[in-house]
């Protein structure tokens, strides 16, 4: 199972980084989303992967899974979800204002036309 999770994480991260380096806003946002999925799975995995064990510590001999990363990942999911919503709205706004969704800014357009 460790290998499966690791491969999935690697694929998600690689795809996310590739998309993030594109020059259009939409792929960049999709890339950021994929990266945040990868991060969430990673946080989940740092509590060590255990199957069929409750997230409750009884004593040292009973198997249990660490509950704290699960709490952390919940927070991280909520935050990344909110942030994605913000960037989608902002990208839409800038697309409607500028008429295109290119990421890069040139020096001439920044500043002089303010």
């Amino acid at each position: 199972m460790e290998a499966l999770v690791a491969i999935a994480l690697g694929l998600l991260t690689a795809a996310g980084i590739y998309l993030m380096l594109r020059l259009r806003t939409f792929p960049v946002i999709v890339g950021l989303t994929l990266l945040s999925y990868a991060v969430n799975v990673f946080i989940f995995a740092v509590g060590r992967l255990v199957t069929n064990a409750p997230p409750i510590y009884v004593d040292a001999t009973t198997p249990y899974t660490d509950p704290l990363p699960q709490a952390l990942v919940l927070t991280a999911i909520v935050i990344s979800f909110g942030m994605t919503a913000v960037i989608v709205m902002m990208a839409l706004g800038s697309f409607l204002e500028a008429g295109h969704d290119k990421v890069e800014m040139t020096d001439d357009t920044a500043g002089e036309s303010k």
């Binding site: 993030m20 806003t25 946002i29 945040s36 990344s80 942030m83 913000v86 036309s113």
Partner: peptide
Amino acid sequence: KDRLRAGVQYIAFNLVGSS
């Protein structure tokens, strides 16, 4: 226009930072 476009870059950069 410029402020919004600069804003998108700022958010994207910080989202990577948060990850």
